[in-house]
Nucleic acid binder design. Structure first.
Lengths: 237, 237
DNA sequence: GTTGACGGGATTGTTAACAAAATGACAGTC
DNA sequence: GACTGTCATTTTGTTAACAATCCCGTCAAC
């Protein structure tokens, strides 16, 4: 849910910023790779940024940490997570467990409106690709997967997918070649075809293939060279 | 410096209680159905119970709420969650998406030690059943599923399963017939057989069947009668 | 007899001050 | 010149007091 565009300057109106809003905003920033892995999330800076007290920020950071999107170091602060190769593999394994099933459920439950929304979404994805707006392209390709979970109409699965999609953005930021975008929208197109044909099995299979391609495009081996070793080794824990 | 009011602390060495510990302790209590749905979790009482400050308790409750094991009502406090029939269905749908895959992975990755541990676990389950220790039986049958996730060696999946198993206990507490225990350990036995035969597909299929049986034993329709209608309708939200 | 209003008591939410720890700079030494 | 130990600053973690909200028992009115 995107935040409603209300002017936050209005002091008389309801300024109630839920900590969920803060969490979502940071989620989005991570997905769009505006917050690279390792970025320090200073409490005071975030207080300033969101115009809320320190307590709210602290709760938001705790929630983000519980989703493993930020790492909390005692007495040192919060940092955007830097997934290890192992964590990256675990995230993709979880996605491979969840998303094929989600795709199937979504096909079974999609209304005509849902399919129309998906089509419209793909148009936006295409446009972003052609306009070379990398951030928007990344955001939309992640959003596509969340849309499927939404169509599947299961809030538990949707919440899990939000976490996994966000962490995938971090993973691609670390292990992906610079030219690689999140998803090839061709794959999304074919998944949409499966929706139109109401072929749940096809959607399932296409999703498996899609995820395998993405994971395969990453460099998950220890591609460390020289001094970088220490940086990556001792970054955390 | 104000000494922490250690009124009746155990003389155990560990004074440092992580909020993760508190979360786990409450998770366990919920799994064992010692904390029925709707139970109020008062901050001051929990402070007393765990011997920690209010901040720790608040953080623990926030984490529990993010796992949807407790509901947080503004200005009213924290309550053990009371899953709706819809939420119950969502939880089982998520388990059906995850656990067959987890079972397959676990079979593929199980060492001889892992299988021995599973066997030992099943003996404990049997013993608990025969001794009619209901709480222990419930705890162990949930633990079995977590053991599989642990053998699958995927921390993401393990964390998700912890949440789902806990919520399942709440669901069974609400919608299960009083005599029904969490899982029939016969099913667990057969899954173990699949491990011994190294038959991942069989484990996968058995898990699907196992979960379907559990869900089928619940009364997820609106089994309301008379005055109960209002209570269930307006219980929350 | 039921309904609505009121106030005491208790619990939660927030703020601010305080304590503890880590970072970074600086100086002294080998 | 590089390394190490110390100190000041900054940032995080904790505690305690304060404010706001809600629950519940009481009471009056219809």
């Amino acid at each position: 849910m995107t935040a409603s565009p209300r002017s936050s300057d209005d002091a008389s109106a309801i300024d109630e910023i839920d900590e969920e809003d803060i969490v979502d905003r940071i989620f989005d920033a991570v997905v769009e790779q505006r917050l690279p892995p390792g970025t320090k999330l200073s409490e005071s800076v975030l207080c300033e940024a969101f115009g809320v007290g320190r307590m709210r920020i602290r709760r938001a950071l705790l929630l983000l940490a519980s989703r493993e999107v930020v790492d909390l170091h005692a007495n040192r602060g919060a940092f955007v997570a830097s997934p290890s190769p192992r964590q990256a593999r675990e995230v993709f394994e979880a996605r491979l467990a969840l998303e094929p099933k989600i795709a199937r459920l979504a096909v079974e439950r999609a209304t005509a409106d849902d399919i129309a929304n998906l089509s419209a979404h793909l148009l936006k994805e295409h446009a972003a690709h052609h306009e070379d707006s990398r951030q928007e392209a990344i955001r939309l390709s992640g959003q596509f997967h969340l849309l499927l979970a939404q169509i599947a109409a299961n809030s538990v699965l949707l919440r899990m997918m939000k976490e996994l999609v966000t962490r995938t953005s971090l993973i691609i930021g670390i292990f992906g070649a610079p030219s690689v975008t999140n998803c090839r929208d061709d794959d999304h197109e074919r998944i949409l075809d499966a929706f139109k044909a109401r072929d749940g099995q096809a959607a399932c299979d296409l999703m498996v293939e899609h995820l395998r391609v993405i994971e395969g495009s990453l460099e998950l081996q220890n591609k460390t060279g020289g001094a970088v070793d220490l940086v990556n080794l001792f970054r955390r824990k």
